[in-house]
Design a protein around this nucleic acid. Structure first.
Lengths: 119, 119
DNA sequence: CCAGATATATCTTTCTACGATATATCGGGT
DNA sequence: ACCCGATATATCGTAGAAAGATATATCTGG
């Protein structure tokens, strides 16, 4: 299970969101340690949509300016489907198991592993 | 940083090991949840070698049978270089940071995240 | 003596990450 | 009035890794 997929599902599960907002939320919360640029995020969202984990919904944001006759900016909002909700829960469980297993490897080596709190 | 790379470095860091033994150790310790088959492990080891993290050393295992004049089975032992040791330590630190960050995403959602101990 | 385990290695396909790029709109500053 | 940076979505090409299949050779237990 892809960690970025879990993050995106988690963000959308928190509250429905559109692509760009997801990117910004991930950047902010990860303190720029995770980059979910357009070329990574949009194909991922398309994948999640195809698998039925999220369902999209277009919004057309009208300009605040009165002298504006354009179609407005498009926003594609994603919400978690029940299937996506189950997927997220399963992802979290498998993530925890995976992490615990990695810790076993790390802590196995006597001199290899470093301390939890390095001096 | 690739989790499998950290696992392999960790296993080798514990004690020098050859490919097949690494596979078996990973299988055993992860209870078959991680498969590091030949097509995954050997290219990875070659990569680690090229980057100077491990240094290989051939061993020729002679048969126990006296009527044996073959060259014997080959074993390629890998040991961690000092650079590999530093790489492993850095990998563990970055893994812990990454895990902590993922937990933030998981725990952020009020109803989204599941409990640590599911009922 | 043979089947299965041990042991290393490559091939090909498939998927994904990621930088670059394209297109279009909104909003604030000058 | 205008421009620039931010907002917003989307695709392309390339490079890299995962994984099943396959090849080769040896050792061991029955």
């Amino acid at each position: 299970m892809n960690p970025l997929e879990m993050i995106v599902l988690s963000v959308i599960g928190e509250a429905p969101a559109y692509g760009y907002a997801i990117t910004k939320k991930i950047e902010a919360r990860s303190e720029n340690s995770i980059k979910a640029g357009p070329s990574v995020l949009y194909p991922l969202l398309k994948r999640l949509e195809k698998q039925g984990y999220v369902s999209p919904n277009w919004e057309t944001v009208r300009s605040e300016r009165t002298d504006d006759d354009s179609d407005g900016r498009r926003r594609k909002w994603y919400r978690l489907t029940p299937k996506g909700q189950r997927r997220l829960e399963q992802a979290i469980r498998s993530h925890r198991a995976h992490t615990a297993m990695l810790d076993e490897f790390i802590n196995a080596g006597p001199g290899a592993a470093i301390e939890e709190t390095s001096p």
